[in-house]
Nucleic acid binder design. Structure first.
Lengths: 206, 206
DNA sequence: CCAAAATTTAAACATTTGTTTAATTTTTTA
DNA sequence: TAAAAAATTAAACAAATGTTTAAATTTTGG
């Protein structure tokens, strides 16, 4: 029955690479087939259609996207430690997958995936108890009175955007990829201090 | 010679609308023609090709994108006032043009515009003297020792990203557009306090 | 080893793509 | 008002698109 399982995986890997860099509309199934070193018929043999293949890749990307969050939140740390670790881990992760934020936001922006975010992506985060830990700290007056949604927006802005803005930033300042990466490292440190300082009012690190 | 100047403008407006929402690859010239209520031949009559039309739209968008910055920086205000005004004005501007950040970053990301950022976009910013004002404040010890590039990254992250993340954020938290916009307003206030607090060390607002 | 199943391929398919052609209509201008 | 110029249209073009078909090859299981 099964022959060489890696064929299906090879196609997925190629599709991921091509979709990530060119987007759903920006590539043809022949681009992907060429990346695999095969034909378009094989893609549809395994995945039925370009759209189905894309949805598979998108779900995987979304899963990766949220995975590092879950790991940190599941740990046995204080809220401050969790936030610091989260920022560290997310930067580490996106250094390895710099196209991911753009791919996710772009796909959602252009409705390339009609499905609303599956609850099985969100539940694991809620199940870590991070939200309760956050509300508890707020009730105790340890942290500022800021909503979880605004806290999330703050974190995502500072962690996702830099990777999405690579081209703009490089052109804007006339710097190359190397300098940009050095700036990224500095940005991470700034963001950590910035957010911790802001959130934990009684704990000025300045 | 000239007949109805508004035809050319009507096409540009339609192209802007379609390109912004669907992206260069995500739309056909027929989509744009339909939006105008005309034919594809007319598009090429005025603009020669889809690519040329896109570049025109992109340049216009980039110009808008930087315009609000220039206005604020040209004013006769203190650095702190300029930063606060910048955040206010940028939010105000992107409330009116929420698709702009995604359009710009996405276009650059996929190399839909080969031309590096024209210097006539950057010079006006440099000419406002904002960079000197910033370095001066740093030398006087009024603000933290942070590079202009990192300061820019901080500002852009917190101002651009929220508008790009609308779909993700709405799905993530299960909120609608109205709640999202309310969160945006709060985010603006947070970012202002956050950044000013961080930058002007001697001026803790907490 | 051999038939059946699974995999891979080349070719064809109907649409859609960006662009061009040539004809028609409208506007200009002299 | 009539010839010239400009604007608009419908139709056609070749190339590229996602998908399917059917044949060929390889793998599997008895």
């Amino acid at each position: 029955m099964k022959r060489d399982l890696s064929t299906e995986e090879k196609i997925k890997a190629a599709a991921k690479k091509v979709f990530m860099t060119k987007g759903f509309d920006g590539c043809s199934v022949r681009d992907i087939a060429k990346e695999v070193g095969s034909n378009v018929a094989l893609l549809n043999y395994y995945f039925r259609s370009k759209e189905k293949l894309f949805e598979l890749i998108f779900e995987g990307a979304m899963s990766d996207f949220l995975q590092s969050m879950i790991e940190v939140f599941s740990s046995n740390l204080t809220l401050q430690e969790k936030l610091e670790q989260l920022i560290d881990k997310e930067f580490e992760f996106f250094m390895e997958h710099p196209e991911l934020p753009m791919f996710i936001l772009q796909s959602l922006h252009q409705n390339k995936t009609d499905a609303p975010m599956p609850s099985h992506f969100l539940e694991p985060i809620a199940n870590t108890g991070i939200f309760e830990q956050f509300e508890m700290a707020k009730a105790k007056g340890e942290i500022r009175d800021i909503s979880i949604r605004n806290m999330t927006m703050l974190l995502m802005s500072n962690v996702h955007y830099p990777f999405m803005s690579k081209k703009l930033t490089e052109q804007f300042h006339g710097i190359d990829a190397e300098v940009f990466e050095a700036d990224l490292i500095k940005h991470k440190a700034i963001v950590k201090e910035l957010i911790i300082n802001y959130l934990f009012i009684s704990n000025p690190k300045a």
